[in-house]
Structures are given as structure tokens and as C-alpha cells.
Design a protein around this nucleic acid. Structure first.
Length: 122
DNA sequence: GCGGTGACGGTCG
DNA sequence: CCGACCGCCACCG
């Protein structure tokens, strides 16, 4: 096989919408376990984007409605949902998280309890 | 090629 | 505690 198919997307079953870095970001979002949440900045750091957490927000906004990517598990550094409440996805995100066992207190999630701690080495 | 924009984050008052 | 501001940088017109 001279040419091995370069894997274009790391995210399974997801077609790229615009950028090629989006699937890369999505692949990290897909690693967040059920019942846990990660912050935009956390995903940005894991994806090698440095502190450009905004790009993570961009990538999630570009997701199609019926995506396998668990976008609901990404919240802001305050443990809150970054979407405006007028956006229907606000309630959707909250409902999805609560159905996973994530508890909201005053519109916020306790990141100490539900925050995802990826591969922290001892 | 340039300028405005944004599902953010950290700092300041 | 909370709102306002600035910094960051890829994407879009």
C-alpha cells in the first residue's frame, strides 16, 4: 500500500463543516466521559490551541444538530452554560447534562465534583 | 489582504 | 459577587 489513507478526521462519524481543526477539537470533546464536564479552555489546551478557548466555542457552534459529539459536556470556566438562555440549546444542554447526573446549583456546575480530569499523571 | 466577530478566560474596580 | 474591559486567534465577508 503505497498510500495509506491519511485519517482526515479524528472525530468518528462526523463530516467537517468548514475548518480542519474543528474535527480535531471535536475529537477531544468526544473524550469527555459521561457525567463529567470540561471547560473550553481545558479542551483548547488539550487540543494544542493554547489559550484560544474561543476557537473551541467556534468549533462547537459549527456542529450539526444530530452530532455524536457530546457538546453538552463543554462549559465555561465558571461552570456555567455559555449560551444565551434565549437560545433553545441552553435548556437542551442543561437537560442533557442533568440526565447524565450532573447537578446544577444556581445555574452552575461544581467543577470540583463534575470537572473532567484527563490523564492526570501521579 | 484587512477588519469585525465570537458557545472564552483572566483581571480589575 | 458581578459587570466591564482587554487579550487571544481562526473564521468570514
Amino acid at each position: 500500500m503505497s498510500k495509506r489513507a491519511h485519517n482526515r478526521d479524528s472525530a468518528p462519524g462526523v463530516a467537517p463543516r468548514r475548518s480542519k481543526v474543528y474535527p480535531h477539537i471535536w475529537s477531544f470533546v468526544a473524550r469527555i466521559p459521561r457525567g463529567r464536564v470540561a471547560t473550553y479552555g481545558q479542551i483548547a489546551a488539550l487540543a494544542g490551541l493554547g489559550r484560544n478557548a474561543r476557537q473551541v466555542g467556534y468549533a462547537l457552534h459549527a456542529l450539526p444538530e444530530n452530532t455524536p459529539v457530546p457538546w453538552q459536556r463543554v462549559v465555561n470556566a465558571s461552570g456555567g452554560i455559555s449560551l444565551p438562555q434565549e437560545d433553545g440549546r441552553y435548556d437542551l444542554q442543561r437537560s442533557l447534562l442533568e440526565s447524565e447526573g450532573v447537578v446544577f446549583a444556581h445555574a452552575r456546575i461544581d467543577l470540583g465534583r463534575f470537572g473532567w480530569k484527563p490523564r492526570s499523571r501521579p
